[in-house]
Every structure is written in C-alpha cells, then in structure tokens.
Amino acid sequence: MSSVTLTRYYAAVDAGDLDGAMALLAPDVRSAILLPGRAVRGEDRQALRDYLTGRGDVVRRHVPLRQTTDGDLEFVYGKVVEDEGTTTGYFLASVRIDEAGLIAAYQVAFDTELSLLPDA
C-alpha cells in the first residue's frame, strides 16, 4: 500500500507522535468520530488531540486493510488491534485533503463486530 496522508496520520497516532499527527491536520479541521452509541465531533486540531489523549494508555494500532483515493478524498478501511493481538473492531475512515496537503475534514465510523472482509 502506498502511503496516503490518512495512513501517515494513523501511523503517527499509533506511534504516540501526536505532534506529528497534528501537523497533518489543517488548523480548522472538522471531524466526526462515530463510535458505538456516540459521536465525537470537533472543529479544530485541539478537538482531535483532546479525543486522542482521552482514550487512555492502551497500546492500540490501526491496521489498514484497504485504501483508495479519488481526487482530494482518501478512504481507508481497516481493523483496530489492541495489545498486539486483540482485534477490537473495524473502521472506515475518509478525509478531504486541502490545497496545502493537510487533512481539512475527517470522518470515521468504528464498529466492534462487522468486518467488510471475510478474512479480516
């Protein structure tokens, strides 16, 4: 898989490099994180940083399984693995990339059960 901005964002988040992850976001990035039973919405980088720091100290990794781009949109489908062995669910994320190459809008849906891929 080639490296798109969204996969670089997840790699930085997973490595604990929040400054690096935030550098990939436009200052006024709009976001929606759709979790089972709730949605977390934001209007800037700080909202995403607050969400990420509020998740606790679990060792968590985003494993991209599929990705594609279409113009200024990027899409990634993958699974979330905790403690290097337990799949906790599956995500479908999309972003819009602005003219500066930064993530201007971010939307992700996470489900603990449904995998779109039979082998995931």
Results as ranks from 00 to 15, higher is better:
A104Q: 09
D17S: 05
G56M: 08
P27F: 10
P64M: 02
G101H: 07
I97W: 07
E113Q: 13
R38H: 12
A39E: 14
G42M: 09
Q67Y: 04
L48K: 10
I97K: 05
R41C: 13
L73D: 10
D70F: 12
D72H: 10
L116Y: 11
G89R: 01
T7Q: 05
E99R: 02
D111H: 08
D44Q: 14
D98W: 01
L114W: 13
D119W: 15
A12S: 06
D57R: 13
V95F: 02
E113A: 13
G71I: 10
A105L: 01
D14I: 03
A93G: 11
R61M: 05
D70E: 15
G85A: 11
D72I: 00
M1I: 04
A93V: 02
L92Q: 09
A23H: 04
A23E: 04
T69H: 05
D50M: 03
T68P: 00
L48T: 03
I33R: 11
Q67T: 10
A11E: 12
Q107F: 05
L24H: 01
V13H: 02
M22S: 13
T69C: 06
V58P: 01
A11R: 11
Y9L: 10
Q107E: 11
D72R: 11
L52Q: 14
R30S: 11
V29S: 06
G54K: 03
A104T: 07
D50C: 03
A109F: 09
M1D: 09
H62C: 08
D14Q: 06
M1V: 08
L116F: 13
L73P: 00
A26W: 02
Y77Q: 13
R55T: 13
R61G: 01
L65R: 15
Q67P: 07
H62F: 12
R45M: 04
Y106Q: 06
S94D: 06
R30Q: 09
T88A: 06
T53M: 15
V58N: 06
F75P: 01
D72W: 04
V81I: 14
H62I: 05
V59R: 01
S2C: 00
V4A: 00
E43H: 13
S2N: 08
G16V: 03
L65H: 11
E99C: 02
F110N: 07
D72N: 12
D14R: 00
P27W: 07
E74S: 05
G20E: 03
G16W: 02
Y77S: 08
T86Q: 13
Y106R: 05
A47N: 12
A11F: 03
L25Q: 02
D50S: 12
T53Y: 08
T69K: 03
I97Q: 02
D83R: 07
V81W: 03
L6D: 02
L114R: 12
V80I: 14
D72C: 06
E84L: 09
I103N: 01
